[in-house]
Amino acid sequence: MVKTILIAIVIFLIIFPVFILFKYSISDRDSIVTGGKYPEPFWPFNPNLKMFQSLLVRNDFLQSGMVSLEVGFLTVIFCLILGVPTAYALTRYRIPGTGVLLFFLLSIRLFPDISAVIPVAEQFFKRPLSYLPPVVLVSLAHTLLALPYAIYIAKGVFESIPKDLEEQSQVLGASKAYSFLRILTPLALPGLGAAAIYTFLLSWNEFVFAYFILFQGTDTTLPVYLLRILTWSPQKNFIAAISLLMCIPVIIFTFAVQRYMRTGLTAGAVK
């Protein structure tokens, strides 16, 4: 009984802030500018979608969304190209020093990004890297952050596919390349898809590196855009609508890859 009440309280504490964000995003002016005469309502007096309508035709918002998408996709591509073959090698071959490598990966995750960002920004502002478009620079930095996760998830995927399957296919006469493409890849695809989504989400949410690298330029990712808006002290419904639009892909994808997400979150933490 105590447990049920506790669970209900926790669920309330989790849902309530998300609900509030939603409420503000559909609020009319009277519901957010109260002048202190009446309390802010928990449901708007005249709920409407005006904020979303105006956002979807705003150029700076759409531009940031595009930048976020480009950075995200580039990061996914870099991470998969670099990470998946490494994960495959780490699971299928006995490489001396694998433990050290994995520890190295883990320590990247633990290294404070606010400390790493200054050297990275310094280097990126210098030639020859400064010739690269900012979008590529941000995705290079995001690749650094996401690569350990991508490797851990992909490693888990390959570990779950018995080596016997590949060997059996080779014994049956298939070439190494054929069995890799026709046996291993189809089996690994859902898991690798999850790794890609996880990488994308990480890039989509990332703030520190994007903020430092894009500090002076005109391009912004969505989180950086949201922060710039915040400094203007905008209306609550406007800020809530941007935040909500930023959340939606994350919420959807997070629950789609929940199972793999756990591996990513707890990778290396549980023996």
């Binding site: 926790v10 669920i11 989790i14 849902i15 802030p17 998300v18 964000l21 989509w204 949410n205 703030f207 989180p223 949201l226 922060l227 935040s243 930023m246 959340c247 994350v250 919420i251 997070t254 629950f255 929940q258 997400m261 979150l265």
Partner: peptide, 13 residues
Amino acid sequence: SLFLIPIAIPALV
């Protein structure tokens, strides 16, 4: 699953 919601909300949000 409900308990996992917070992780799906970006820190900035």
